[in-house]
């Protein structure tokens, strides 16, 4: 398993380089222009000068090479400097956003807390609710609980967040006045009172997001459980006198986790990716909002960096999922 992991990690490097090139070319090919959001009152000559100032007059291979150098060579130095107080990176050009003219990584780090608080918590909450629902619905298939669970989760899943977001704001923020309709990103958690305040303000966005996650994962969990409940090994386990809890919670659940682990692992990078619509509705202004505004403004360095970090996480978590398969099912061999 260790050799497998190491081999996969080394293989990941060329894969990621290739992915970064594909993303770059895709962004390059896409029509659009960083000047598109500027008012029409700015004349074309000035726009052209602004493009030149952004370095857009250079051919794409040069720009790609620059991005690679900045991202893989200079940014790590900045990180080292930041941790150890050294000054390797002094004066080197960093990856700079076209919108803000400031280093992309600084903005990304600034956005992480919001996204982790809201999307991360929603993910954990969603999984914690979904797995018991999935297990119980499968165990008591076609019971009232199963039917109701199916109905609620499917409705929750099929209604888009651009509808549920404003709906819960309308009900809980405007009519009832229980929760704020906007998320305050400057809020700092320092003590118990501010922590409660934080929970209070993230309740609505977490609710909207967790509904989607719960629906999805509980469906997969239920399906996987149903597959395993009728297997012969379950009958064997029961036949040899194992307790029902032991049979279901250990044998069946463990074997059912394989597809669910894939779904969960694949979902983790999307936490980082943020939730574009929900973040926008509640003004959480996390990574998702950063990405969508960057795409709308054609801020290529920002989009490129964000999607690349996203790609790294995807590759990493797919590897983790593969390793977990091996742990959950010792029969799976990779070598």
């Amino acid at each position: 398993m260790l050799t497998f992991t190491i081999r996969r990690l080394t293989l990941a490097v060329p894969t990621l380089l290739f992915i970064s090139l594909v993303i770059f070319l895709l962004l390059e090919l896409a029509p659009g222009d960083p000047m598109a959001q500027m008012p029409l009152t700015i004349p074309p000559e000035v726009r052209e000068q602004m493009r030149v100032a952004l370095g857009l007059d250079q051919p794409w291979p040069v720009r790609f090479w620059k991005w690679c150098v900045q991202f893989f060579w200079i940014e790590p130095q900045v990180l080292i400097d930041h941790i150890f107080g050294t000054s390797f990176s002094a004066g080197d050009p960093r990856v700079v956003s076209w919108q803000t003219r400031s280093p992309v990584m600084d903005t990304v780090i600034q956005r992480m807390p919001q996204t982790l608080w809201v999307v991360g918590v929603a993910y954990v909450v969603g999984i914690l609710i979904a797995i018991p629902i999935g297990i119980y619905s499968a165990y008591r298939q076609y019971s009232i609980f199963d039917q109701a669970g199916t109905f609620v989760t499917m409705v929750g899943y099929s209604v888009p967040p651009f509808f549920t977001g404003p709906l819960v704001i309308m009900i809980f923020a405007v009519q009832m006045g229980w929760f704020p309709s906007l998320y305050d990103t400057t809020h700092k958690v320092v003590d118990w009172a501010s922590f409660k305040e934080q929970l209070h303000q993230m309740f609505l966005p977490v609710m909207v997001l967790a509904t989607q996650i719960t629906a999805q994962i509980s469906r997969f969990m239920r399906a996987a459980m149903l597959d395993n409940l009728h297997q012969d090994y379950v009958r064997t386990a029961r036949a040899k006198g194992l307790g029902e809890t032991m049979v279901v919670m250990v044998h069946v659940v463990r074997n059912s986790m394989i597809p669910v682990v894939t779904v969960i692992a694949l979902g983790v990078p999307s936490i980082f990716g943020g939730a574009i619509i929900t973040e926008q509705v509640f003004k959480v202004n996390g990574i998702g909002q950063l990405l969508i505004t960057a795409i709308q403004a054609n801020d290529l360095p920002m989009v490129q960096t964000l999607t690349f970090i996203f790609a790294v996480l995807i590759v990493l978590f797919n590897l983790i999922a593969d390793v977990l398969y091996g742990l959950l099912d010792p029969r799976i061999r990779y070598d």
């Binding site: 100032a53 050009p93 956003s97 903005t107 400057t186 202004n285």
Partner: peptide, 30 residues
């Protein structure tokens, strides 16, 4: 000129004559 984009601190917190002074600027947020 070409050094304009390097001045993040200046671009995010210009000194002005207006009624307010920046204490924190989070780009595209608050």
């Amino acid at each position: 000129g070409a050094r304009a984009p390097e001045c993040t601190d200046q671009n995010f917190g210009p000194i002005g004559t207006g009624p307010f002074v920046v204490t924190e600027f989070r780009p595209n947020d608050v």
